[in-house]
Simulated assay, not measured.
Amino acid sequence: MSTRIREYDAMAPGSRRLTWLLRLSLVGTVFTALVMLVGAWTRLVDAGLGCPDWPGCYGQLVVPGSDNASLAYPDSPLEPVKAWVEMVHRYIASLLGLLVIGIVLLGRQSRRDSGYPWKLSLALLGVIILQGAFGAFTVTLRLWPQVVTLHLLGGLSVLSLFLWLHLRLKRYASGGDGSPRRPSVGWGLAALVLVLQLALGGWVTSNYAGLACQGFPTCNSEWLPAMDWSEGFHLTQTVGPNYLHGKLHAEARTTIHFTHRLVALVLGVVLLGLVLRYRQSRVLRPYLASVLLVYAAQAAIGIANVLLWLPLWLALLHTAGAMLLAISLLLAFWRWRYEEAPNSVPNKHGLPQGISHEAIQG
């Protein structure tokens, strides 16, 4: 048996190692969504500074009693519920990091195999490490809006990378080896506007601007309210002592919220254009229809948040909608990327092109 065949046999589609990689990448995708929702809950209940230090809580790995907490940080009174919410978020985020490390170690033997997404695994590890650093800075920089926004984008990046890794592993297991399509302008524009809108959503929540525009479709009973663009998007502001509940004045917050609404409208137009561009594709139609459906639901949830004065459960649902929108667009792009890629269909044994069943046996 040749070296190439022995190397493939070790990672054959039915092998235990590849099966575990597929499972762990799928679990990682779902678990990342859970971690992000717990993080959103932590932010929404004002528990982001429930522990004044990092990675412990008042110098300990579990939430201490009030007496020990006051001795460690006398200027930060302990609120046990908020402290536990924050620590639970840290615990499960740490488990997610261990999961990524496990995937990297498990796939290390296949790092030289053609088609194995080794670089993608390393990229995921790098992003999860960076995300941990953002988590630390969120606390040490006292909810600085720039860091909170980057932390949200980092979570969405981890979610997207986990899903992409799972799809790549499935393709590797099936033996697909065709060249994928290069991204077109339409897909690139949709991705760019979506990332911008997600970043604006993070900027809205980190500056507590969710209710800066009251009413819909007008903002504070005006189609063009009073705004302060220079202050609303002053990205080089200094780190303050504490950004809990925000520091910007009303007109600056109105600017942030109003911009979020405008870009949401632009995103809808871009996504509709994508649907019209590929309306003839029977394969893509259900995927793009799902993208539009999720977008419409997300827009409705955003409007409801304003009209109902930002109830906690609905704000959390808005975060879930943002994740689902990113996932649905990513799945649609994946389907387009490999829809008609040449040589992308595996042979009848489910093995990569050029490796036959007889060769594996003998």
Rank of each mutant, 00 (worst) to 15 (best):
R4E: 15
A12T: 07
A12P: 02
L21I: 06
V27I: 15
F31L: 14
T32Y: 05
L34N: 00
G39P: 04
P52K: 08
P52F: 06
G56S: 10
C57W: 08
G59E: 10
A72C: 09
S76F: 11
P77V: 04
I92T: 07
L98Y: 10
L105N: 12
G115Y: 15
Y116V: 05
K119D: 14
I128Y: 14
G135V: 13
T140W: 13
Q146K: 04
L153H: 05
V158R: 10
V158K: 10
L169K: 08
P183E: 07
S184N: 01
G186C: 02
G188I: 03
A190E: 09
A190Y: 09
L196W: 07
L200W: 03
G201A: 02
T205M: 04
S206T: 00
N207Q: 08
G210N: 09
A212K: 06
T218K: 14
N220F: 02
L224I: 14
D228I: 00
S230C: 00
L235W: 13
T236L: 12
Q237T: 06
K247Y: 05
T254K: 00
T259Y: 08
R261C: 04
L267S: 06
L271H: 06
Y295A: 08
A304L: 12
W313L: 14
L314I: 03
Y338L: 04
N343I: 03
N343V: 10
V345A: 08
N347S: 14
G350H: 06
S356Q: 13
I360Q: 12
